[in-house]
Amino acid sequence: IRCIGVSNRDFVEGMSGGTWVDVVLEHGGCVTVMAQDKPTVDIELVTTTVSNMAEVRSYCYEASISDMASDSRCPTQGEAYLDKQSDTQYVCKRTLVDRGWGNGCGLFGKGSLVTCAKFTCSKKMTGKSIQPENLEYRIMLSVHGSQHSGMIVNDTGYETDENRAKVEVTPNSPRAEATLGGFGSLGLDCEPRTGLDFSDLYYLTMNNKHWLVHKEWFHDIPLPWHAGADTGTPHWNNKEALVEFKDAHAKRQTVVVLGSQEGAVHTALAGALEAEMDGAKGKLFSGHLKCRLKMDKLRLKGVSYSLCTAAFTFTKVPAETLHGTVTVEVQYAGTDGPCKIPVQMAVDMQTLTPVGRLITANPVITESTENSKMMLELDPPFGDSYIVIGVGDKKITHHWHRSGSTIGKAFEATVRGAKRMAVLGDTAWDFGSVGGVFNSLGKGIHQIFGAAFKSLFGGMSWFSQILIGTLLVWLGLNTKNGSISLTCLALGGVMIFLSTAVSA
Rank of each mutant, 00 (worst) to 15 (best):
G408T: 07
F108H: 07
R402K: 12
C291R: 09
V473H: 04
Y203C: 13
D98Y: 02
E276K: 09
G28M: 05
A248H: 08
P222M: 13
M125N: 08
N8I: 04
F463P: 03
P222Y: 09
K124N: 11
N163C: 04
D87E: 15
L269V: 05
D42N: 14
G356A: 02
S64L: 14
I365W: 08
K294P: 04
D348S: 15
G102H: 05
S185D: 07
A54R: 01
S64P: 02
S286P: 11
I43K: 10
D296S: 14
T205F: 03
L475G: 03
S146P: 01
V328E: 10
Q350P: 11
D430R: 02
R73N: 08
K443M: 15
V415R: 01
M140D: 08
E79K: 11
A69D: 00
T179Y: 04
Y59K: 06
F431G: 01
D393V: 14
G187L: 15
G181S: 14
L352W: 06
G383E: 11
A248G: 13
T309W: 10
T233C: 02
G334Q: 06
T88L: 12
V415W: 13
V97T: 14
K373P: 07
V97N: 10
S112H: 04
A272Y: 10
F449R: 04
M421K: 07
A501S: 15
V330Q: 06
N362W: 08
K316T: 07
V303Y: 02
K394F: 02
A229F: 01
L472S: 08
C30P: 01
G187S: 01
T233E: 01
L456H: 11
A272P: 12
M34G: 04
F453Q: 13
H323Q: 13
S51G: 13
W217A: 04
C116W: 08
T49R: 15
K166N: 10
K301I: 11
T254M: 08
A346E: 00
V502S: 04
V24I: 15
I484P: 02
A54N: 06
S455I: 11
A413R: 01
A229D: 14
G436A: 14
I221Y: 03
G404V: 06
T32P: 00
S405H: 06
V473M: 15
L289I: 15
A80E: 07
S51N: 09
L135S: 00
P174T: 07
C3Y: 13
N478L: 00
A178Q: 04
K290C: 06
D155L: 00
G404K: 05
G78S: 09
V213K: 10
H144W: 12
W211S: 03
R402G: 12
P222T: 12
L489Q: 10
G390W: 08
T194R: 15
T160P: 00
L477F: 14
L135A: 02
A69L: 14
V388S: 15
H144E: 10
D22R: 01
I65G: 00
N172I: 06
G184D: 06
V243E: 07
W400A: 07
G383I: 07
Q447R: 00
P132Y: 14
V355M: 08
W20M: 08
V56Y: 03
V343Q: 05
E370D: 15
G404P: 04
I65F: 04
K316A: 13
L322T: 01
T366P: 15
N8L: 00
G102F: 06
L188T: 01
S86Y: 08
C121S: 04
L376R: 00
I130H: 05
T500Y: 13
L293M: 07
T406I: 12
L196K: 01
P39M: 11
C74I: 06
G263S: 09
S461Y: 11
V257Q: 04
E377C: 05
E262V: 12
F119N: 08
T179L: 04
G337I: 13
T19D: 06
I130V: 14
G271L: 09
D296Y: 01
E244I: 14
G195Y: 08
A452E: 07
G334A: 01
L201E: 00
M460D: 12
V255H: 01
T76G: 06
G436I: 02
L223R: 07
A422P: 00
W474A: 02
F183V: 13
G104T: 03
Q261T: 08
G106L: 07
V153A: 12
A361S: 02
P174H: 07
L223M: 13
S403M: 15
P192M: 08
T49I: 15
V437A: 11
K283F: 15
L196M: 03
S129D: 09
V97W: 08
Y305G: 01
M34K: 09
T369I: 15
E244R: 11
R193G: 09
S16Q: 03
E26P: 01
L289F: 08
M53I: 03
T49P: 00
G356N: 06
Y61D: 06
D384L: 07
T40M: 10
G145M: 12
G182S: 15
H210K: 02
L204P: 11
A280P: 14
A272R: 06
V31M: 08
E44P: 02
S372N: 07
K373L: 14
L223S: 14
A311T: 12
S372K: 05
F438Q: 06
D67A: 14
W400I: 10
A241V: 09
V434Y: 09
I65C: 02
S146F: 15
F183C: 12
K443V: 06
E320F: 02
N52F: 02
I65V: 15
G111D: 07
S185N: 14
F11P: 01
K239V: 03
G458P: 11
G109A: 06
R94C: 08
F431T: 10
G458L: 02
C3R: 05
N172E: 02
V265Y: 11
Q350G: 13
W429I: 07
G127L: 01
E44G: 09
V256G: 10
G182W: 05
C105N: 06
N154I: 02
